[in-house]
Nucleic acid binder design. Structure first.
Lengths: 226, 226
DNA sequence: CTCCTTCCCTAACAAGTGTTTGGTAGGTTA
DNA sequence: TAACCTACCAAACACTTGTTAGGGAAGGAG
């Protein structure tokens, strides 16, 4: 895996300047000005392959093959394989948090908030199932890299939101008070998001239907209450 | 930083120590006849790295580095990187099914069976947390390869066991009858196994304690029943 | 017509990959 | 002593990887 050797010349041994190949980049830099539709098309395709094979196991030649072009041609649209992954994940997270913020703006009670968050989460899985699957597999390993630091930020914010809602519900009597809330948080979080590993959009269950069933199990349990 | 400290070869209790040099083994073939302890030691180390970085993202040089030796030296113990992964996953699955079979042999009712399976699962996560994490990330992608066909077999057997128990419980009135059982199966399965992504052995919660809390949420829900 | 932009191809590069081959220090056995 | 075995090293091999440089076909604009 060649690092970013480029940016200046091809074969220049640099005795100094060992790190910081970062000129002041203002925004996400596309490689060239290209049509956003083609870009989104290729990105969706790459996300699909990443989700199926795993990011590291996916070669850029495979993506290009799936798109009906050659590997080098991808670099007209994107400046690296990593930037594709970056854009896939960040756009997903942006939309996710937009949805969550809409839920929070409604200012519901703890239980209704949890319900709305679960429904919203399943909708996001429906819309971004490839990105979610990638996130599931790679987030933990990626969040260490500086470029993907926003993954860790999002995780923290995620925990504050869900755990805070659970705590609020436990104190108001909406949720059981005898539970380890951190354990409960992980339970809720995982049960919702791992659904992306088997969920396929266009199946027989709508996201809302799945969310309803999940919420029923999560809130009331699967056993017959005596 | 390579760890040069290794190979405490004291306390060698080898009951049989067969002096059989090379009988044609049709089973898993080790590269050379090597001490099983060192082999297991290296395998545990490789599993740890695989779990942390992902299989494809882990280089064989990295594993060797962690073991304090060079990449080629690993091939004295194993004949390929893939065979390390194979052995990690298959030994885990063997032990898992041994545990499940012991549960089944008790011939409990549906609810008690589910409870025992969950407890057993958390014990396996405790014992093989690296292998479980690898399984979680790579199983779906690997089960296509012929060498790892047993992963798909295990998944099918897994589904028959859990789904069958859920169906039994739904018909006997132990579990709610208004649930989509296939959805319930995935719910139960996922909630148990994704715990491997955050669980660390030696933490403050024992596997049995976590299983108890999980079962409480799974069976009775997190909401206060009215 | 020419100029320019868009989008892709051809052909390579350098670094990294899993793996092999031959060698060897050190202990055990004959 | 010599032969042997274990567990590693040293150095390479063939191949794949992400990435780049230059070129060219198509089409619209002037």
């Amino acid at each position: 895996m060649p690092k970013n050797v480029s940016a200046t010349q091809t074969n220049q041994k640099n005795p100094q300047n060992p790190k910081n190949p970062n000129p002041p980049k203002s925004q996400k830099d596309r490689a060239v000005s290209a049509s956003p539709e083609r870009r989104a098309e290729l990105l969706a395709l790459a996300a699909e392959v990443f989700a199926a094979q795993g990011y590291n196991a996916t070669t850029v030649r495979r993506i290009a093959d799936e798109a009906g072009m050659l590997a080098g041609s991808l670099y007209y649209h994107f400046d690296s394989k990593e930037s594709m992954l970056d854009e896939i994940l960040s756009t997903f997270l942006d939309e996710l948090w937009a949805g969550y913020d809409a839920v929070l703006a409604a200012d519901l009670g703890p239980r209704a908030t949890i319900e709305a968050l679960v429904v919203e989460s399943f909708r996001e899985i429906d819309r971004h199932h490839a990105a979610v699957a990638i996130y599931q597999k790679e987030a933990q390993h990626l969040s260490g890299l500086p470029r993907f630091g926003y993954l860790a930020d999002s995780q923290k914010r995620f925990e504050r939101l869900w755990l805070g809602t659970l705590e609020r519900g436990a104190s108001t009597g909406a949720f059981r008070a005898d539970l380890d809330l951190r354990l409960t948080y992980r339970f809720v979080r995982d049960t919702v998001w791992v659904a992306a590993s088997w969920y396929r959009p266009g199946g027989q269950h709508s996201p809302e239907e799945i969310a309803r069933q999940y919420l029923s199990m999560l809130l009331d349990g699967i056993a017959v209450q005596s």
